[in-house]
Amino acid sequence: MSESKKVSLPVLGEVDRRTAVKAGAATLGLAAWAAAIKPWFEWTAELNTDEFLQKHYRELSPEQLQAILNRLTDDARKETGKAVTVKDHKPLPGVSFAYALNLSICIGCRKCAEACHVENNHDRPSHQSYIRVFEMQKGGIDFEKGDATYSHPVPAKDKYYMPVQCQQCENPPCVTACPIEATWQESDGIVVVDYYWCIGCRYCEAACPYHARRFNWEKPQVPAAEVNPNQSYLSNRVRPQGVMEKCTFCLHRTREGRLPACLEACPTGARVFGNVLDPDSEIRWVLENKRVFVLKEELGTKPRFYYFFDK
């Protein structure tokens, strides 16, 4: 700019003044811009560089993963004052999970949804849960006549109840949708999310036909005293703001051989869970002996979550 000033001295009164005014305006503009985006820096101040640069879960070396688990454990302990452990549960070899639900004996008590809420460190104010229980009109399987917000003694006359959670599809539309492979299907059939890789575009949420995915619209609020200390990297650790989450069949339990929290909470035993590759398993017996069906079969998603009626 200074060069142009020198070169063009003769006419310069006007141009010089204009340049000065422009420079002033540009400075003011920059200052205003800095002020406008200040909240962004208030937010980034809370982030840490390791987390920002962290690689995709499946590309981490065992040492890197261990370091991350240690960091998460330390942070969670500091924050809650509880003996939290954040582990990484790998899929078990020779295991392929499936779930079945007996609609004839489900009474719609929502104990499963509540257990999920507690087990998976869900946001408290929104009553978040991976399970939504629909009160359905007998005479069809029509969600248009369903209602998830019922609040009266159950089971009500002429109604039946249909809990819906992630169907852990064999052909998951959410995984196809994700532009960055932040969600994928593991060898035991569980579809997981890397909470440190997800960018929060919510295309998976649009793609899911079962309303199974949830977004962290803000940082989940879980009082320290209520935090479930048995956590896993891909499942129930307290999620960051702005990322997707979903039912993981409680992989932090089921990959230790335990039953999912929703099943244990079910007072009627409507839920059956197990390894379909084991011919003696309860789930195999149900699939072979009950007339099971899946939701929205016509979409070709091949759910691992089955429903059946006894009578």
């Binding site: 051989g257 335990r258 244990e264 009627t268 035993g269 059956v272 197990g274 390894n275 398993s281 309860e282």
Partner: peptide, 13 residues
């Protein structure tokens, strides 16, 4: 008897 009625807690495995 086939685990498809009545509540349970513990292990699937």
């Amino acid at each position: 008897q086939h685990g498809a009625h009545g509540g349970m807690t513990g292990h699937w495995d």
